[in-house]
Design a protein around this nucleic acid. Sequence first.
DNA 1: CCCTGATTCGC
DNA 2: GCGAATCAGG
Length: 209
Amino acid sequence: MSWTDERIETLKRLWSDGHSASQIANELGGVSRNAVIGKVHRLKLESRIKPAATPTTPAAPLAAAEPVNAAPAPQPAPRQAAPAVLEARETPPVAAAPATPRILPSSAPQPVAQQSVTRTLGATALKIEPQFAPYEPSVEEDRPSAEVVPISRNLTLVQLSERTCKWPIGDPLSPDFRFCGNHSGDGSPYCTYHARIAFQPASERRRVR
DNA sequence: CCCTGATTCGC
DNA sequence: GCGAATCAGG
């Protein structure tokens, strides 16, 4: 492929639109990202307004509005307060036993069985008293709502690579159509989550479909 | 590791 | 002019 006027034009447009070199190379086809970068330099396109949100750096500002007018925290350090605090180490059990209600993953039947050792005449026998069935495909466990749904990167077609999840998201006819885009391991077309959905073992296949 | 852009340098 | 190789960084 050569740099025809049209291709160069496309290059300029995409580059100024903030597409990465690899994305552009992708769309143009027949060129590597290096070729694109090289061309960009030769054309002296450099300066792009905005890095256009690098996929690798979603950038989560979330700047916790730090109260600028917060107490200057000079902490006059009351000569007596400090020692007082130290002595008050016998902190009243205000939040003693929070009685934490354990939230467990829906999977993993947790304590599969309670073991109780029974000693019989010197011999040690292991008696297993299952409190839960080793595995019961219960209705509870089947609720997908309890499943952890990964946040997709919502990449566009051109942003996909050989290692991005190609699980479709949205209406293929809509301009908002995207792909999951999360990392897909080792040649798999999908991320682990979507691979599970896509390649459901006959036993799991049911509800989702 | 995967991805970005920047530079170099033989062709 | 071109772009693979390589470098530097996130």
